[in-house]
Simulated scan of single mutants.
Amino acid sequence: MTWRPYYQGNGERYQGDLPVPPPWRFASTKQSARTFRPPDGLAEAVNAALCLRRPLLLTGAPGTGKSTVATSVAYELDLGDVLHWHVTSRSTLTEALYRYDALGRLDATRHDEPDDIGRFLQLGPLGTALMEQDRPRMLLIDEIDKSDIDLPSDLLNVIESGEFEIPELTRHAQEKVQVRLWDGNTTGTVHRGRVKCTKFPFIVMTNNGERSFPPPFLRRCIRFEMPAPDADSLADIVRAHLGDQLTQQANDLLTEFEHRIGRNESLATDQLLNALHLVIREAASNDEERARLVKLVLRDLSSA
């Protein structure tokens, strides 16, 4: 297999098979957990957060594996699928707790449909994590530093109490209402408009270091700094994904990546894996073409 046959820009139709994506591109939870290589000290931080029932705040540059920590922990501790809340500057605490389709309910009423309020409610990722269940859930709050300035403090109140209220249900005549959960079409029962966890969720929050947080927020978290990978950890990660037998070209690329990291260039580990995949699996036809592909993939993340 070579790189050239897929697209050549000459208007000619290509009828052959398209390339198979790298195994990590659509990896299962099991695959991601088994190929993850935690840095020194991370296991202690995870266990401390677990024992104290405190959120784990992971800080580090993009591509250092912060989000993968949640997948790894959820798999090893059998916490089910990761509930993912990706935070932006427009994110609100309410949307993470529940969503209410008021217009949909009004439209149903106009069409004389039964007033089943549960049809128009869905718990968000945080709300689902706080539902009654036999085993804790894993909640990933991704890029908390992108949030509005007040969101971390608002989040603390819910995390501390482990419960919240849905006003639309506290005023409803039914004592028990079935509402949809965030992950799929499953439902859960909300009693008198209140959700209170029985098993406190494991919460991982990621932070790219773009802002500071108030001391009351930080003291309620277990904090861990994800280090930039060194030569040994990079080699472990590469072997976990690509096996022990690497070509000389792959070893040269690994050495080049290590040197660039040492010069404080902003590069992510998955960029290295992608470059290695092109060099090893796709077998560019010559050194010049290979160099262009590597340059294309291994661009510094601090520049556009």
Rank of each mutant, 00 (worst) to 15 (best):
2 T>Y: 09
3 W>K: 11
6 Y>D: 07
8 Q>E: 15
9 G>C: 11
9 G>H: 04
9 G>Y: 08
10 N>A: 06
10 N>K: 15
11 G>R: 11
14 Y>P: 06
16 G>I: 10
16 G>Y: 07
19 P>G: 04
19 P>L: 05
19 P>Y: 02
25 R>V: 15
27 A>H: 08
29 T>S: 15
30 K>I: 08
35 T>P: 13
40 D>K: 15
43 A>H: 12
43 A>F: 07
50 L>K: 15
52 L>F: 12
53 R>K: 15
57 L>S: 01
62 P>W: 03
72 S>R: 11
78 D>F: 11
79 L>V: 10
79 L>T: 10
82 V>W: 03
87 V>I: 15
87 V>L: 05
87 V>F: 02
89 S>E: 15
90 R>D: 14
92 T>V: 05
93 L>V: 13
96 A>V: 02
98 Y>K: 01
99 R>E: 12
109 T>S: 15
111 H>K: 15
111 H>M: 10
116 D>W: 08
120 F>K: 01
121 L>W: 06
123 L>H: 00
124 G>Y: 01
141 I>T: 01
141 I>C: 01
142 D>L: 01
144 I>G: 02
146 K>H: 12
148 D>C: 09
167 P>F: 07
167 P>T: 08
168 E>N: 09
172 H>V: 07
174 Q>I: 06
176 K>N: 13
177 V>M: 06
179 V>A: 04
182 W>P: 00
186 T>W: 08
187 T>G: 04
190 V>L: 02
191 H>P: 02
192 R>W: 00
195 V>D: 00
196 K>Y: 02
201 P>W: 08
202 F>R: 05
203 I>M: 06
209 G>C: 09
211 R>T: 11
216 P>G: 09
222 I>W: 08
225 E>R: 01
229 P>G: 03
233 S>T: 15
234 L>E: 03
239 R>L: 01
240 A>I: 08
242 L>D: 05
245 Q>L: 10
246 L>M: 14
251 N>F: 07
257 F>W: 08
265 E>R: 12
265 E>V: 02
270 D>F: 08
270 D>L: 07
271 Q>W: 04
272 L>T: 12
273 L>K: 07
277 H>M: 06
277 H>K: 06
280 I>G: 05
280 I>R: 11
281 R>Y: 08
288 E>K: 12
297 V>S: 03
